[in-house]
């Protein structure tokens, strides 16, 4: 009777189980950070815990959605709670505290940082691909596109008709970027002066992965999240626009 009750309970896609799990993670990481005397690392610890659970989920199920592939968290569980819909909804709500004068001040440099960010990441990614022995222009461009974001990679790869293995590498490069951004940002923030709205907008424009920027800033200085997110949201669009076109032409002229 008890097992039957438990099975039918665990078989449902419970958003509530996932909310309870996330609340538990937040609670425990908060306690740990207070014990360590570093309360501001609580969010970073919580995000790292999430990544570790995603790793475990991926290992256990062999799927590509981390913990969301485990049945009690799938569908309307972690899949919904951590999906792009609620992420975007809550990010947009943070714009409520934004001051117009800060935006005006950082607007032009934000646009410049977007262009520099996409071009820089593409050059680095392509250079790494070439250094490690890739010579086909379409493949090099796709891996370079992956270093822009994990969306620009597959979009470029599909447009240029490369193999799915190269597309998988480009997605992985983008994921490495997103995860590293979340983990490293809190530790590097002081060093790069990430403490005001202008530098947050520049940071969002340079790094560009919305999840990475959002997670990194949330763990560093939550009041800067809206500024970073606002520029980052244009990054992938700009990347999908210039990388498969101008980027490919440049790489092809270098390699041929």
């Amino acid at each position: 009777m008890l097992t039957a009750a438990f099975n039918s309970f665990a078989g449902a896609d419970h958003l509530i189980i996932s909310i309870a799990l996330i609340a538990l993670i937040m609670f425990i990481t908060k306690k740990i950070s207070i014990m360590l005397g570093e309360e501001r690392i609580a969010s970073a610890l919580a995000i790292i815990t999430g990544l570790v659970l995603a790793f475990i989920g991926g290992k256990v199920t062999g799927g590509s959605s981390g913990l969301a592939d485990i049945s009690i968290f799938s569908g309307a569980g972690i899949g919904l709670l951590g999906g792009s819909m609620l992420r975007d909804y809550t990010i947009i709500s943070t714009a409520y505290g934004v001051k117009l004068k800060n935006l005006k001040k950082a607007g032009p440099v934000g646009v410049i940082s977007l262009l520099v960010g996409v071009i820089f990441s593409f050059i680095v990614g392509s250079a790494v691909a070439m250094a490690l022995g890739y010579t086909d222009p379409a493949e090099v461009t796709t891996i370079g596109a992956g270093a822009v974001t994990f969306i620009v990679g597959p979009v470029t790869g599909t447009a240029l008709g490369v193999s799915s293995e190269i597309i998988a590498i480009s997605v992985a490069a983008g994921l490495v970027k997103s995860i590293m951004t979340m983990v490293i940002t809190p530790f590097i923030a002081d060093l790069v002066g990430l403490d005001n709205p202008t530098s947050a907008m520049v940071y969002g424009g340079l790094i560009g992965t919305t999840s990475g920027v959002a997670g990194g800033l949330a763990a560093t200085a939550p009041e800067l999240v809206p500024y970073g997110a606002m520029t980052a949201t244009f990054y992938t669009g700009l990347g999908t626009l210039i990388v498969p076109s101008v980027g490919f032409i440049i790489i092809r002229s270098i390699l041929l």
Binding site: I22, A46, G66
Partner: peptide, 20 residues
């Protein structure tokens, strides 16, 4: 916002990133 980012982190393809 932050709890949702934690949930988002928990559904990333971390294994895929390492296997890349």
């Amino acid at each position: 916002y932050i709890p949702i980012i934690v949930a988002m982190a928990a559904r990333l393809n971390v294994v895929g990133a390492i296997n890349g």
